[in-house]
């Protein structure tokens, strides 16, 4: 675990940048977090990234908490704190500012175009996350089965995802995955 200022600065800068590009929420930047943490900075290997993502998804709370885990993994408590602030701070300030002015432009055609243009981008970004993360997590046919079953249940039923995660972790524990 490294704890020097350079690492903290990199965490702060990268996550602040990412948050401002995260159209579609935290799930939209999973590929970029993976690219930075595994491929560019070498903070962890692919399996560790998959583990942290799974923990963040299964735990209660917003999906964005993956950055806290990544930050902690890289630079301990301070790293977790810096990553969380960088990812959750700047866009919250932006949202508060815009919520005060945005309504004034409600009927303006450029606002409609901006909004309509950004929606498909955010869908594409989350789809990219699904592609990349499925590639990391699914490495045999049982894992594939769990993924397909979870997707189907989450799409067609109103099951609490917690049950799905519970069942999946039991199957994993039993040694099927």
């Amino acid at each position: 675990m490294r704890d020097d200022g350079a690492v903290l600065f990199t965490l702060a800068f990268q996550f602040a940048m990412m948050s401002l590009l995260a159209f579609g929420g935290a799930n939209a930047v999973v590929p970029e977090i993976h690219r930075q943490a595994v491929e560019i900075q070498g903070w962890m290997n692919g399996r560790q990234f998959a583990d942290l993502f799974a923990i963040a998804q299964a735990a209660p709370g917003p999906n964005v908490m993956i950055v806290t885990l990544v930050g902690f993994h890289v630079a301990g408590f301070t790293g977790g704190l810096v990553a969380t602030f960088a990812m959750c701070g700047p866009t919250a300030v932006l949202a508060c500012f815009l919520s005060r002015t945005w309504d004034r432009f409600r009927e303006k055609p450029w606002r409609v175009a901006v909004q309509a243009g950004l929606v498909p981008i955010s869908v594409g970004l989350v789809a990219a996350s699904a592609i990349i993360f499925t590639g990391i997590a699914v490495h045999n046919w049982v894992a594939m089965l769990i993924t397909v079953a979870t997707a189907a249940l989450a799409y067609w039923t109103r099951f609490n995802p917690l049950w799905l995660f519970g069942a999946a972790s039991l199957m994993g524990l039993a040694g099927f995955v």
Partner: peptide, 16 residues
């Protein structure tokens, strides 16, 4: 093994 199962479920949730 538990995390392997969880990751597969997390991928499914993301797909949905």
């Amino acid at each position: 093994r538990v995390l392997g199962g969880l990751a597969a479920a997390a991928a499914g949730l993301l797909i949905a």
